[in-house]
Structure formats: structure tokens, C-alpha cells
Simulated scan of single mutants.
Amino acid sequence: MSVAAATPPVLEARGLVRSFGGVRAVDGVSLAVRAGELLALIGPNGAGKTTCFNLIGGQLRPEAGTVRLAGADITGLPPPRVFRAGVGRTFQITATFGSMTVRENVQMALLSHARRLFGLWRPARERMRREAEALLARVGMAEQAERACGVLAYGDLKRVELAIALAGAPRLLLMDEPTAGMAPAERGALMALVVRLARESGIAVLFTEHDMDVVFGHADRVVVLDRGRVLAEGTPEAVRADPRVRAAYLGWISV
């Protein structure tokens, strides 16, 4: 399924700049992602991918440029406000409460989004139980709802983390190395799930990834960063064939 170019972008970042110690880690980066679209942000280590993510997610404030979510300016807002504005995020290293059950982890995310963590009149485990179970069903983890996260296989933890990110009903989902540490079969299954959820719910997805099979197999478009700048942008096929990408990354990217 292609995403119409005329569709207004959910995420629109323009002219982002951020320096560290005199080095511009991000130098005028612009990108846009539309509802239901998967955009891959790729490049070698040090290209500026994580800094871009942190500028969009609020962990860093840009020195220049703007970030707009569904037309609203969220530039420089702190992460909690970015989250409540409709931006979900998963990380390269999963972050769940190992002693809590799968369902309880998702319930905590739902309660946080609803601002109901304090002043509870009944145990948290009874609140938003059905909503948590519905999210787990969407990511294929309903049958493991009562298991502790600490005993789950890594691929299942990634699915739980995805359910936690969906608890905030995001319009934009940022995924930092979503398949890192996973077996090849698990990678394909997870990304197929992400594609389905994005299409069904109209979620815009921006993800970084070092596995080029994942990128070229699942992204609708690809942005290539080189030393903090956009080197190339387009469909996976166009980026793979781009002579600039071949020249810069010969041996890093299969052509």
C-alpha cells in the first residue's frame, strides 16, 4: 500500500540543527512522514540518526529548525509533553519492569497516559485491564499476559514494548533499531506487525535500522544521512540505486 504524497504529513521536521563540541551532528535535516507510512532513517554510526530522533522526541532541543506534529509546533517540548501530544517511542534496548506481568506493564503505560498514577482508590492492577488486554491482542501477546516480563524471550519483549508505545494512542511512532538483537525470522514478523498496525490505525512510523533487509523489505521511503546531512531520499529501490549512496557506502549497503 502506497501513501498518497498529497496527504498532509503527521510529522514535519524542517532544518534541524544540533552541535556537540563544535561538531554539527545534525546539519539542516528535513523530513516528513505521513499517516500509515514507514520512513527508514539510515546511515553509518555517527551519521546523526539518534540525534535526529532525540530532537523529534524532545530529549534534545534543536539549535535551529522546527518539529511539527499534525501541524502543531512541538519544537523543544520535553519528552512527557511530546508523548502526550501523540508521539510514541521504542528503544534499541527494551525497558520494561521485569517483575511485573506483561499486562501490568501495559496497564502502567495506559494509566500514565491517562494521568491516573496517583490518588488511586483501587489497586492499579484492576484499572484499564480490558484496554491493556486489547492492546496485547493487537501485538500477539494476549496469551502471555500473566507472565512476568523478566522471563520473556527477547522477541516477545519487543512486542510488549510496542504495546506500551501504542498505549498513548500515538499519531507518530519512533522506533530506534526495532529489530536489534532479534533472529532473522523474528525481525520479519515484528516489522510485518508494525506495517499492519501503521496501515490499520494510520500511524506514521519513523525508524532507524542497520539491517538493510529490514529497511528495503518494509520501508515505504528511506532517508540516508551522511555526517549529519541528508544524502539521499526516496523509495527503497531509488535509494539502493542512487550513485551517491553507492559511492558513500560501498561495502556498507548491498547494491
Rank of each mutant, 00 (worst) to 15 (best):
A192T: 13
G155K: 09
G202V: 13
P170T: 06
V195T: 06
A153S: 15
G188Q: 14
V194Q: 00
A153Q: 15
V160R: 01
V215A: 07
V223G: 03
M128L: 15
I203Q: 06
G150M: 05
L110I: 13
A95V: 07
I164S: 04
T208F: 00
A204T: 07
A134Y: 03
D213C: 01
R115E: 15
A169H: 15
T179S: 14
S112C: 13
G202C: 04
L225F: 11
G88V: 02
T179V: 14
G150V: 12
T94N: 12
R138H: 01
M108W: 00
P178L: 13
N105S: 05
A142P: 02
Q92H: 10
M141N: 08
V194I: 07
G188Y: 12
H210A: 05
R171L: 04
A169T: 12
R227Y: 14
R89P: 03
L157V: 09
R116T: 10
R127D: 14
V224M: 12
D213H: 08
M175F: 11
A192Q: 14
I164C: 11
P123A: 06
L120A: 15
R199D: 13
R103G: 06
A204S: 05
G202I: 12
Q107A: 01
L136M: 11
R227M: 12
S112Q: 14
D156W: 12
R221M: 07
R130P: 01
R127Y: 11
H113D: 07
A145W: 07
M175W: 11
D211R: 11
D220Q: 03
V160L: 13
L206S: 05
A132H: 04
L157N: 09
A137S: 10
R116H: 09
R103E: 12
L117C: 12
F207D: 00
F216V: 06
F91S: 03
A153R: 15
P170R: 04
